[in-house]
Amino acid sequence: MDLTLKVWRQAGPGTEGRIETYDVPGISEEMSFLEMLDVLNDRLIVEGREPIAFEHDCREGICGSCGMMINGQAHGPQKGTATCQLHMRKFSDGDTIVVEPWRATAFPIVKDLVVNRSTFDEIIAAGGYISVTTGAAQEANLTLVPKAVADTAMDAAQCIGCGACVAACPNSAAQLFTSAKLAHLNLLPQGQPERWDRTVRMVGVMEQYFGSCTNHGECHEACPKEISLDFIAYMNRDYRKAIVKNRSLIAQP
């Protein structure tokens, strides 16, 4: 198929960007979206024009590196699918496709489609872990985890940290990302001792960089792992409890 691409080009963090238009003929339906960009980049290089910078690594929808706005949608039109797993059969001959980077103050643009998502790491550093010194762990089967709890924790833990939730949100909020990590850890028995501190700290760092949630639900729609909005409700509940909780009574439910 023959396509027209309109791509955001920006040389560096401080510089001004603009949309550039490229004809991309002869694309196969079997190609992934990133392979289509590879083909375009190869041609640009041969023509002496700088290739389009974009992040990618695993190309299996798991590392969370890739991500771009495709026709205004984070990761493009296919639900539950990261950009690297999106295939060209989802487009038609003659289409014009607009490709832009994630847009959020907390994710400054580095170059073209590449943004800096270090603020996500900062949220994790603020308690997104269970403190267990290497070697201090007890025999694993001493802690029983009901299957339903393990399954829900896993549903939350699947988050790949790509940032699509933030990019899709009209407020650039990071509620889905933060709540997924909180739910993963706060649901498990192992996560209980640090539950309330973790919640307060992570929410605090989140609010420092990201917008607030007004329940649009766009984050869930864009999420390649289809992380549930329920986790946001769960986070809000834990947060409310955490700020009033008398921590010495922590053993009580």
Binding site: V132, A137, Q138, A140, L144, A150, A153
Partner: peptide, 22 residues
């Protein structure tokens, strides 16, 4: 065997049986 203990303690959501065992 120590690895599994370490990772379970970190909250790695390993698959469980209905009994709650790994």
């Amino acid at each position: 065997v120590d690895i599994i203990d370490q990772c379970a303690a970190q909250g790695v959501p390993f698959a469980r049986e209905y009994s709650g065992l790994l």
